[in-house]
């Protein structure tokens, strides 16, 4: 909806308005779609690696995963029973107005609705130590960026526990450099072994501060699979890491094979002269994200 105002000069200003209810509906739909429909980029990667995998068990597993995605899409059931914590990225245009409720309330209401109507599992506990299930998968984990313009981009990325638990962050010394980064990524993937349901997608953040670095690693998982970084030396690093990870031999489900990762994505950010933070966010083959622009 477009509202018109006059500024002090008597000029007409128009402000785009989005109803909170529309945000709720969109989030609910995206929660379901993300869990039912595996991205084509992932299916393509399954098919590609199926041709390259030499382990018979590994091949069989990849075939099962392709079939699984088909069954989930046809029956509109979640591809994995762990339908995750709802991680939600918002890109909020600075010229936009939201009417009829708070933005985060609208998002959480969408999660509540999507997880109920989609028969998705509720996997969130209210207190990390007392651990009572909130019963509706809220609250979501929400990351917001203010951007120019008047649109709201919503990305819903449900994240399973098995792979999230195998992720790690480390503050390296700058002198450890690129070799230190590679070593840490490989150590993390190796230690994860079968637990994050390989084949995995590896999101790596390098730089920023402690918390920024973790967020970079998470954002790296949202990129279309295998699309290289636009920064040439980072694209090169991604290739090297991908090769090294697939030499570990972990393979599909960790039972041995060539296909340990479907992709390694690296995101970077400037950092302090004394720091070299590295974060590795591991995602399973159920790498789920769906987006919409309002």
């Amino acid at each position: 909806m477009q509202h018109f105002f006059y500024n002090c000069m008597g000029e007409v200003l128009s402000i785009k308005t989005i109803a909170a209810g529309a945000i709720t509906e969109t989030v609910a739909r995206l929660c379901m779609e993300a869990n039912f429909f595996l991205g084509q980029d992932i299916t393509d990667a399954f098919n590609k690696t199926l041709g390259e995998e030499t382990s018979l068990t590994g091949k069989e597993i990849l075939k099962q995963l392709i079939q699984n995605a088909q069954i989930a899409a046809e029956n509109k059931v979640p591809m994995c029973q762990d339908t995750g914590v709802a991680v939600i990225f918002l890109e909020l245009g600075q010229d936009l107005q939201i009417a009829g409720g708070g933005l985060y309330d609208a998002v959480n209401e969408g999660v509540r609705k999507g997880y109920a109507e989609g028969y998705l599992r509720k996997s969130v506990v209210d207190h990390p130590l007392l651990r009572k299930n909130t019963g509706d998968n809220t609250p979501a984990v929400i990351h917001t960026k203010i951007v120019p313009g008047e649109n709201l981009k919503i990305t819903v990325a449900p994240k399973g526990g098995g792979s999230e638990n195998m992720s790690a962050i480390k503050m390296l010394k700058p002198s450890e450099g690129i070799e230190g980064v590679k070593k840490f990524v490989l150590e993390t993937v190796k230690a994860a072994g079968p637990n994050p349901c390989p084949p995995i997608v590896v999101g790596v953040g390098i730089g920023g501060t402690f918390e920024k670095c973790a967020l970079l690693a998470k954002e790296a998982l949202l990129r279309k699979l295998g699309g290289p970084s636009p920064i040439p030396d980072i694209a090169e690093l991604e290739k090297e890491l991908m090769n090294a990870v697939n030499k570990l031999g972990i393979g599909p489900q960790g039972l041995g094979g060539r296909t340990t990762a479907l992709a390694v994505h690296v995101e970077i950010y400037p950092c302090h002269i004394a720091s070299l933070p590295v974060a590795v966010n591991i995602n399973c083959h159920s790498t789920r994200h769906k987006e919409a622009v309002l």
Binding site: A72, N75, K76, V77, P78, M79, C80, Q81, D82, T83, Y119, L120, R121, G161, G162, N165, N195
Partner: peptide, 19 residues
């Protein structure tokens, strides 16, 4: 396993292994 909720008309929700 901790399955996802059962959709009407189905035997069980999605039910893969947990760690």
């Amino acid at each position: 396993v901790g399955p996802s909720p059962t959709k009407p008309g189905m035997v069980i929700g999605s039910a893969g292994p947990t760690t």
